[in-house]
Structures are given as structure tokens and as C-alpha cells.
Amino acid sequence: MSDASFDSKAYEAEAQFGDYFALLKPRVMTLVVFTALVGLLAAPVAVHPFVGFCAILFIAVGGGASGALNMWYDADIDAVMRRTAKRPIPAGKVTRDEALAIGLTLSVFAVVFLGLATNWLAAGLLAFTIFFYVAIYTMWLKRLTPQNIVIGGAAGAFPPMIGWAAATGSISVEAVLMFCLTFMWTPPHFWALALFVRMVYDIATVPMLTVTHGRRSTRVHILVYTILLAGLAIASAFTSIGGPVYLATALVLNALFLKGAWDIYRRDEDDSENDNFKVEKSFFKLSLLYLFAHFGAILIDSALVRFGVLS
């Protein structure tokens, strides 16, 4: 075998920096960063800007580390699903051992440095979040129960609570409300996705609700969870995280979200096939706007209070 033949093959498969970065699930990280930032900035405690920046960075790194550990464990599932087949491990760019090493190293790094930069309550919450996402969700529930999304969604709901704890050193009702908002939002968000990437979970034998209970049941679940979410989101407007901007945002977006969930409920599979899941896809896109807008509104209201515009 010549050097040239060896090198050209190695070059094609060799991981670049971006492949290692992709292990950290940068798109998921944007949600983590934004909600943690809102938790940190909405807290009634002034945080030094650089410490705040570091806190968000370490929370993001911790979230990324759990993503790498998720890819390490789920490499077999990722390889058979079209949506995930191009991830670094199934694509042959990064080995499972590398992903495990990166995930563990960054987990320890993120927890220790968040503790040093802010406080050990925030660091403990970050450590628990990583443990919950990797051990409870990825290793245990994801392959065991169709409620995987519901319980696993808790992992994604922790970042605003960590941000709040990083600023205040405690957990209060505001942090819990932000947690609940993200927690309740996760199931309809992911079940809508599961409806229009239908074959993916069937092949991978992940017990998604669409596979175990059927697509009709999934549509019912989306509607029920959206009604519960809307109640929680609007009621939160009258708590300490609420304000006029939040109330207006919650009223508009929850009306749209409820309508979307109702439309999904009323449809059957033929309708969805005929327009290539147009309603389900638009509901999924709306769900992304929904969460960012709610947290953005919390941030604006807290800024208005801080600058004396609101009492």
C-alpha cells in the first residue's frame, strides 16, 4: 500500500475541528445558552458581566458535553436514522471513544469551572443536568418508554434554573416556573417532529409515542400537552416572572399554539400525506419561536423593572 492511497482515504475520513464541535450539538446549545442567559439576567442580583459571560459559557459547555455523551451512547441509533446519520460518529469522522473522552472531560471542566466562577449550587445543578440527560434519559428511558420525551425534557429545562442559581446562589419560584415552562413545552415540540419524520423512529426502534401508541394518539397527546402548557404559560404572567410584555406575548403565542395543536388533532394521516405534513411542520417551527419569545419577554419585563420603567 502506498502512502498516497493511505493518505487520501485517511484525509476523507479524518475529523476536522468542526466535527468535534458538532459533537456538542450546537443547535441545541443555542436553546441552552438563551434560556440560561434569561435565567441569569432575570435574577434580581447584579452579576459582573465577565462572570455572567463565563457562567453562560460553562453551562453551554456542560450542555455540549452531555450532547457528546449522548452521541457516544446512541451511535447505533444515529447510524440508522437519516436525520442523524451524518453526525460525526456514524459518518466515521470521530470514534466513539473520542466522543466519550471529550464528553467526560468537558463535563468535569464545565462543572468545576462553573463552581469556581459562580457557586457550587449552580455547579451541582449542572452536574445533575448532565447526569439526568446522559444516564436517565439517554441510557435508560429513551429506549424503554414512550414517555421518554416527557421525562427527558427535564434535562433541557434546567438551564434557566442553573442561570438563576449562578446569579443568586439559590433556587426560587421564578426559577421553578421557567423550568416548568420549558418542561411542558418539550413534549408537543418533539411529538410534532416525530409526526413528520415518521419512518425514522420506526427503523431505529426507539419507542416514540408515534410507534408505540400510534399517530392518532400522538395527535391527542400534542393537544392535551399544549392545553396544559398554555394554562401554565398564561398563568405565569401573573407571577413574579410575568409582566405586560410577557402577558401580551403569552396570549398571542398560546392562541397560535393552541390553534396549531387543534389543527394537528383534527387531521388524519391522509391529510398530512397530501400536503407533506405542512401543518405539523409549521407547528414545529412555531414551537421554536414560542419558547424563544416567552423567554425573551421574561427578559424584557425584568429589564423594564430593573430600569424603573415598571414597578
Binding site: 479524518e14 468542526g18 465577565f50 462572570v51
Partner: peptide, 27 residues
Amino acid sequence: TRRSGRNLGVGLVLAAFIAIIFGLTVV
């Protein structure tokens, strides 16, 4: 040549790490 991008990325991450630790210490 093949690994230049990767090495540059690692170098930048390490430089950022040093800057963050220095900044945190000052604060």
C-alpha cells in the same frame, strides 16, 4: 496541511481558555 484546521481550532480554544481564566482571576 491536513490537520492545520484542527490544530488551529485547538490552539484558539486553548488561547480562549487562558484568557477566560486570566479574566476570571482579575474579576
